[in-house]
Design a protein around this nucleic acid. Structure first.
Length: 491
RNA sequence: CGGGGUAUAGCGCAGUCCGGUUAGCGUAUCUGCUUUGGGAGCAGAGGGUCGCAGGUUCGAAUCCUGCUACCCCGACCA
């Protein structure tokens, strides 16, 4: 009642904005374009971090930390990199404040101007490669497989909670290799790690592909990406992995002696995912009642709500509830027992639905008599009374079911909203009226890509990595094409 | 950064056009009693620099100017 949510059909973006705030994930801050990630939202991010970090370690990477500030001169060393980021950099020019002469506060001390201005990192390639120069001399120093968890700042014009904020949290992997082949292998390995994470944990099916030249990371030779389809038919780039070639090695003079004793430039990759994934999670699965979280990333997997008329009943129910909690926690399930007397059960039901808790167990006097509990699952909103014997086993299976179900639901949605077209008219019809992914032939030219973007707002999300090599003609120019590419309107 | 909109109690809003009692409603909060298997009921109470800064006026939430933030639509991006 107090937290009525706008429906998706009524206004999808309003639904998203309200949901983020009402489910207590994040809110806008006093600083333009920056968000406050609240504890519930942050714990989802922590779960993502923990999982990804483990996956990175399993693939041989280690964590380190590089500075937030980058000297301006570093930044300008790689030409296309500067061009890509220059328009959205925050710059530090001074290092001191002083009291305003009229006593009304503080002002920047003009005496404290920095010799060299500092850029707040929009990404760390430059500072990292400047450092790697000192770390790498020989092929024996390679590969260098480093990741960092950090915040970055990109001065965005229009921001949205999680999807695009001026400051965001992410991880960025930066690796150095002796050969081109090895670097490309690393790039592909990591995009596959992201894809596996998206599908197995976020429960979101993704398309793996490479970016066209115009969508590529500034400074990369190739950008691999995973693209997910949101419920409103728009695509969300959910992770990228870049093959940087020798661009940064040349810009920062990072050379090594190879086995033949010859000097050569190092081959590089970088890859990242951000708090944007939280936005993906919300938009992929949630419904008009609120969040739907995949069990593997839900901060609370099971909530237990007691139903009682008096203290005596509450005591008996609590005894049973705590016993169940203990049993579930023993098998690594995160359980919250909500015995607050300040809210009624119905209120709690609605609240936990809004917050996307996968499983709710309700226990009342009738259940005590019958040795039963009521189990409700968030993804289907269905309820069932079951015996409270062997609850652990049941819940484990149920959580697995939910994880699989929401993935399948998202997969079916994507299948139903992926279209193959052969004419520009069909293309426009689908992009304008339905949305979704559209597979179409493209002649490979930046001009055609731009024209299509200008006319329809759809962009090439990626060139499918495992796409069929099918000859055809470009829907726009009629020129020959070797394979279909994936178009969509994107976030 | 361009166009449009909004800013009044924690949240959601009315009042602003046409200046004039003590700024109101819903919800939330607090107290008490009754309640508890899907967002409880009744009674009472507290809570406001009307976004910020100037200006006009005897008098400003209301009129004027400037600023800021947020939302929507464009251009740019993870």
């Amino acid at each position: 009642m107090a937290k009525e949510l706008t429906s998706r059909s009524e206004n999808y973006s309003q639904w998203y904005n309200e949901l983020v705030v009402k489910a207590d994930l994040a809110e806008n801050s006093a600083v333009r374009g920056c968000m406050v990630i609240k504890p519930y939202g942050y714990s989802i991010w922590e779960k993502m971090q923990a999982t990804l970090d483990k996956m990175f370690k399993e693939t041989g990477h280690v964590n380190a930390y590089f500075p937030l500030f980058i000297p301006k001169s570093f930044f300008s060393k790689e030409a296309s990199h500067v061009e890509g980021f220059a328009k959205e950099c925050a710059v530090i020019t001074h290092y001191r404040l002083k009291n305003n002469e009229n006593g009304t506060g503080v002002v920047v001390d003009p005496e404290a101007k920095l010799e060299e201005e500092l850029i707040i990192r929009p990404t760390s390639e430059t500072i990292i490669w400047n450092t790697y120069r000192n770390w790498i001399q020989s092929y024996r120093d390679l590969p260098l497989l480093i990741n960092q968890w950090a915040n970055v700042v990109r001065w965005e014009m229009r921001t949205r909670l999680f999807l695009r904020t001026a400051e965001f949290l992410w991880q960025e992997g930066h690796t150095a290799h002796a050969t081109k082949e090895e670097a490309i292998e690393e790039t592909i390995k990591m995009i596959n790690v992201y894809a596996r994470f998206a599908e197995e944990y976020l429960g979101i099916p993704v398309i793996i592909g490479t970016k066209t030249e115009s969508e590529r990371f500034a400074g990369a030779l190739d950008t691999y990406c995973i693209e997910a389809l949101m419920q409103d038919g728009k695509a969300l780039q959910s992770g990228t992995s870049h093959f940087l070639g020798q661009n940064f090695a040349k810009a920062f003079d990072v050379k090594f002696t190879n086995k033949e004793g010859k000097l050569d430039y190092v081959w590089a990759t970088s890859w990242g995912v951000s708090t944007r994934l939280v936005g993906a999670l919300i938009m992929a699965h949630s419904d008009d009642n609120g969040l739907v979280l995949p069990p593997r990333l839900a901060p609370i997997q099971v909530v237990i709500v007691p139903i009682y008329k008096n203290n005596e009943q509450l005591e008996k129910i609590s005894e049973k509830a705590l016993q169940i909690k203990k049993e579930l926690e023993k098998i690594e399930i995160t359980v919250k027992y909500d015995d607050r007397d300040t809210h009624k059960p119905g209120w709690k039901f609605a609240e936990y639905e809004l917050k996307g808790v996968p499983v709710r167990i309700a226990i009342g006097p009738r259940d005590l008599e019958n040795n039963s509990v009521e189990i409700a699952r968030r993804d289907t909103l269905s309820k069932e009374i079951i015996s409270s014997n062997n609850l652990g086993e049941t819940i484990v299976k149920l959580l697995d079911d939910i994880q699989t179900n929401i993935y399948n639901k998202a997969l079916i949605f994507r299948e139903n909203n992926t279209f193959t077209v052969d004419t520009y008219d069909e293309f426009k019809e689908i992009i304008n009226n339905k949305g979704g992914f559209v597979l179409a032939h493209w002649d490979g030219s930046a001009e055609t890509e731009l024209k299509i973007k200008e006319e329809t707002k759809a962009t090439i999300r990626c060139i499918l990595l495992d796409g069929e090599k099918e000859e055809g003609t470009c829907i726009y120019s009629g020129k020959p094409s070797k394979q279909r590419v994936l178009f969509a309107k994107a976030y």
